[in-house]
Structures are given as structure tokens and as C-alpha cells.
Design a protein around this nucleic acid. Sequence first.
DNA 1: ATGGTGGTCCTACCA
Length: 267
Amino acid sequence: MISVATWNINSVRLRMPQVARFLVEQAPDVLCLQEIKCQEQLFPYKDFADLGYSHMVVHGQKGYHGVATVSRIPIREFSRYDWQDNGEARHVGVELLGPEAGALAGMVLENVYIPAGGDQPDRTINPKFGQKLDFLERMTRWAGALDRPTLIVGDFNIAPLPDDVYDHKALLKVVSHTPIEVETLGRFADAHGWVDIGRKHIPAPTRNWTWWSYRTYWQEKDRGRRLDHMWASPDLAAQTLGHRFVEETRRWEQPSDHVPLITEFAS
DNA sequence: ATGGTGGTCCTACCA
């Protein structure tokens, strides 16, 4: 069995103790991080190596965004797309290398941080919302040309299903759950036949939220959303053995506002 | 619940 995890960590340097605890307790073979919020030369390479994750591919940026994939299995950088066409570090892809990767050797693992999109769901008054939709359109064109088993994971910043939020009707006009975002994400899904691993193993309407606001009011009400996802090519999806999200990390000291997801594959 | 909290890096910007 090989396990792959994803976590929007909201500063990897600040939260390295939580990351270490997660790696020790859950022991995924590969971890994809989003919002590392540091340049590549400031990434805590030694901390990960000391934990056994000696293979690292980092796409960093000063202060904002940034993604990294760390692994106990050999990996090599495969891709680094700028789907927003503005230089922000929101993607890195790796290839899993054998023989440690077993049946997953040659699998491509794409780690993405889709833009949040600002507050107003109208591209004419909020350019960030337009950039989010354009980012998804570029991903869709890319996905239509894929020709090898791929797992795409990360913070999609969209909760697509009615049961992916605490109140479907109340959130229809809130960025992350608007019909235009859900439809645009749906076209991305159709472009490759992606399988939503979270909902394959935890079907709706069972709750599997991955994000809770830091704001006190929302936390007290326990109002979350499923913004983080792991989507697999159809052939790869047939190899999944299990999937879980580790909600308890949201209650740890000085937590990220997102929780990690883990998928297990037959190997 | 148009208020509110938290990150980076020092002044706003991003989520």
C-alpha cells in the first residue's frame, strides 16, 4: 500500500511542528503542501529529511502561495504550470519513480493551489474571480490532453456538491460554492473523467469538510466547507483502497485553517 | 451574520 496526502498548511515554516506530528502519526508516503508561503531557499528541507522525507520538489514564492511535494519514495519534478499566467507559484507536478513506487511507478502527481477568487462572485467588479475561472479553464484544456495516470490534489477553493457546505442555499452567492464555479469545475472534471476520491469513499451526504474559517463566529458554529480535493484518472481511481481526512488537526495548537486528506493505493 | 482571524513582512495584501 502507498499513501498520498495533501494539506494546505498556511505557512510551512510556522507550522513545521504540526507537519512533523502529522507525518509521524499518519505516515503518508507522499505529502503535497499548499500555501507554504516561502521562497525555495527558505523551505525547511532538513526538517523533512530528518523525518524520512528526503525527496522534495518545491515551487516557492516570497510571502504568498507556494507549493511543495515531499516524499519517502523517489520523485522527480515533472511539471510547473502557470495556469493563472501571472507568475504566482500555485502548481508543481512530480512523477513517482520505481521500484519503491510499486504499481504507482510512473504515476504523475499534480499539486495545485487554485486561487481563492476574492469576495465578490462577479468578474466585472472583482478581477480575482475572473482569474479563478480563467485558471480553471486553462486546467481544463490541459486535462483534455492528458495521456497517463494522474492524481491531482490540493486546495481547489471550490466546494462542488450541496453537501460539501454547511448550508447549500445560504452559500450559493458565496465565492467557493457559486453555480458558475461549480459548473466550471464540472467542465474540468469532464475533460479527463476525473474521479473525486473524497466522495468515492465518503459519499454524500456524509460530512467531509476540509476547511473552517479562523473567524471565531464560524468556528463556534462548526460551519465548514470541502475545499480540498484528491481527483484521480479513472484507471488510477480503481486502485484506491481508502481515503480519510484528519479533522483533529484543526483542533491542534496554532492550526492551519485546512485539514489534511490521505488516499491509500494498492501497490 | 458586511464582522471577524491569521499569515507574511513592515505596509498592505492575501486568504
